[in-house]
Amino acid sequence: MQGTVVVTGGSRGIGAAVVRALAARGVRTCFTYSTHREAADVVAAQAADLGTEAVPVQADVSVEGEVRRLFTQAQQLGPITGLVNNAGITGRQSAFVDLEVERVRRVLDVNVVGAFLCAREAVRRMAATGGGTIVNVSSRAAVLGGAGEYVDYAASKAAVDAMTVGLAREVAAHGIRVAGVRPGLIRTDIHASAGEPERVERLKGTVPMGRGGEADEVAEAVVWLLSDAASYVTGTTLDVSGGR
């Protein structure tokens, strides 16, 4: 795996695990964070300890100008050969009838518009330099629906799944692969942000494997999709969910 990989939302959770997994393989990254510079610096230091450069860039992926700036900075590290569309948010757990329009718009802006903007900038550069790979981080919620908790988040991830299929077909002739992963119940901070830090423990009995997953397990799937080992994989999304 050569070149530079852009990882959005790389300061925590799955994104941070992806940056570390790539660093362990000697792959340089440029990753985004939203507000917590300290967390981003920790991830960059962890990558450096593994002997690989990881450059944090503050960016809101839903803002077109900030996405363009991100890719301009990333390109200074070398040709962009990979994008991991990982940045995503959800609101607090809520019944559908109580969802506020501002919250729904923000979830769609970050999770859908952000993924589109980043993929567009990546495709423009990859098409000009011989190809690359985009991995979109979706969620099993896209299939299960998020009832009673976050239907808006689930719908946003279903949109990402559709984009994965359509974009893969559109850019295959340019040497660009587009695939995705759908994490299930993974131990990350997103559950606390949604108002239930122990959500994985509550629901782990619904997982056939009987446990929640770890961010590192999702990261390994992402890295495989980015690698030449997945050279004939495009337009599909891999479930990383313990069977749930």
Rank of each mutant, 00 (worst) to 15 (best):
R187S: 05
R20E: 14
L226S: 10
V18R: 10
R105V: 07
G9D: 04
R92K: 10
V233W: 06
V7Y: 12
Y232D: 02
A162S: 14
S193H: 09
R169T: 01
G10V: 10
A39E: 12
E170Q: 15
N86R: 09
G88L: 02
G148S: 06
L70C: 11
G130A: 07
R68E: 14
R25N: 11
Q93G: 11
A179G: 06
V63E: 13
E198S: 13
G131N: 07
E220P: 00
G166S: 07
G65H: 01
E201W: 08
G10Q: 10
G132D: 10
G145N: 04
R28N: 02
T188H: 04
A128V: 08
E64C: 08
D98T: 02
A119G: 10
A17W: 06
A17I: 01
R182Q: 09
T72D: 14
A221M: 05
T52K: 13
A158T: 01
A159E: 05
Q73C: 02
G213A: 03
K157V: 01
Y150S: 08
R244G: 05
V57F: 07
A229M: 13
T237P: 01
T81A: 09
G78V: 02
T32N: 06
A74S: 12
R103G: 01
A54S: 12
D189F: 02
M1K: 12
L203G: 00
L77V: 00
T133R: 15
E214S: 03
A147K: 10
N111E: 05
V223P: 05
V107H: 06
V143M: 15
V84L: 11
G145F: 05
A162P: 00
L203C: 00
A23L: 10
E217P: 06
S156T: 00
R106E: 09
E170H: 11
T206M: 12
V43K: 04
I190R: 04
P208N: 14
Q58H: 03
V55M: 14
W224V: 13
F31L: 03
G145L: 05
A155I: 02
M1D: 07
F116Y: 15
H174Y: 12
V5M: 13
R169S: 03
G13N: 10
Q75G: 14
A194G: 10
A147D: 02
R211Y: 03
T35F: 07
A194N: 00
A24H: 10
D98E: 13
P56A: 01
R105S: 09
E38W: 04
Y153C: 00
R169P: 00
R211A: 09
A119E: 09
A87T: 03
T129Q: 15
G145H: 05
V223F: 12
A168P: 08
R25I: 07
L83W: 08
A192F: 06
A47V: 11
T236S: 13
G213K: 04
Q58F: 02
L226Y: 15
A44C: 02
A127R: 15
M1I: 12
G10D: 09
Q58N: 03
A173G: 10
